[in-house]
Write a protein that binds this DNA or RNA. Structure first.
Lengths: 214, 214
DNA sequence: AATCGCGTAAATTTCGAAATTTTCTTGTAA
DNA sequence: TTACAAGAAAATTTCGAAATTTACGCGATT
């Protein structure tokens, strides 16, 4: 028998698998099947899937069960534009309210991110640094909006960021040298505009960073 | 025994009770207690509450159970500002993309709303028209953003609108003659600005309509 | 009086099976 | 061949109870 797994771990494992597109878009998620992988009952899986549907990583319909979120050009566009809206507003508010701690946190997050990115750009291939980069990228974007003072905006952004990742990882793209070189410049542009508290420039930088997904 | 109630009805009943603030903010929602009112098992209630937590009407914490959403001046302010953000963006996009059908639907929704509001304002008391007004108000605001072309924005707005209602109904306010006279003017201002496709004016009108909740 | 620890009560989560609903398959008629 | 219907299989939901975790009250100690 599988060595008893804690429920939070099941949630975490399924979340990661969903965000890594290890389930095909629209694929049915049957508690009775997933039950086998983890040593628990189908109801526990159902419970976890209901919670994941709150984030938007899975879709739930009464009497129809669960599915991995659908993917389409329209869906990706929708998610991207919504993310731009939230990230702009969150950053705008942070620039307005954020103090030195916000600036320091943002600079630190960017420094870490930039360090990883230059290393990847040198080699030309993310390789095993992919997970490190993933975390650092997330930290940077959350730092941006962290001083906005709106718990609801942050929570909603958190959900949309997860769905964004889920949609984009399935999109094969060449994570080559050029890709990361471009990303580096874009993150730098966002950082500079944010620290300069230049709303117009910041809005443009955020859009430029995400427009490749439209 | 209570005459067998369908699960969707339980969901709907709890949703309405939550939005009518029939549970105190932060009040614990115990499946084992609620089970009595409806003729079902505690697990069914748990299921429904998990789904309601997706909308944001109830808060869920692992091993701690469910609570009706907390209420505070900060929470109300947060929700209101977020609603302003979404309603502005949704309306902006609708003004950009919406055609004649959008205009017609919006005009119709406002006509119905305005009819009910003038009747209430004449009497000075909502009375039993309150439910009618509630529905019409909701229809009007959803009409505004209906042509935005973003399913995610509409769904998120739907959630935040429900939470907004939940927060505000508990705020005793005098729904007197003056209140409805003001509301009538505000809705008219939003309608006019939207039909004129005047973004600046529309943003201002939406803010003016909701600023009393800040 | 305040704090800590222990034991009891209460609440939450998990389970496996039964009941219900949906989906699929197969057969029949137009 | 298509459409429809009936039956079987599969999936989802619901249930009541057991297991686990958390919350509470009470007494002892500092």
């Amino acid at each position: 028998m599988t060595p008893r797994i804690e429920t939070p771990d099941i949630y975490e494992d399924l979340r990661v698998r969903l965000m890594s597109a290890r389930f095909a878009p629209g694929e049915k998620l049957k508690p009775a099947e997933l039950q086998g992988h983890y040593g628990c009952s189908a109801n526990t899986i159902r419970d976890v899937l209901l919670r994941l549907s709150k984030v938007g990583l899975v879709e739930f319909e009464m009497q129809k069960g669960f599915r991995a979120s659908e993917s389409s050009p329209e869906a990706r566009r929708d998610i991207t534009l919504f993310r731009v809206l939230l990230e702009r507003e969150g950053t705008r508010l942070s620039m307005q309210k954020g103090g030195t701690e916000w600036e320091a946190g943002l600079a630190a997050a960017h420094h870490k991110l930039s360090h990883i990115e230059t290393r990847i750009a040198r080699v030309g291939d993310p390789g095993e640094d992919m997970r490190l980069w993933s975390n650092a990228e997330k930290e940077f974007h959350f730092s941006l909006i962290s001083a906005c003072g709106s718990p609801i905006l942050i929570e909603t952004y958190s959900n949309i960021y997860a769905r964004f990742r889920q949609q984009m990882v399935s999109q094969e793209r060449d994570f080559g040298e050029d890709y990361f070189r471009a990303i580096i410049a874009e993150h730098k542009a966002i950082l500079d505009a944010a620290l300069a508290r230049d709303e117009i420039r910041c809005n443009a930088a955020i859009y430029d960073h995400l427009k490749r997904n439209l």
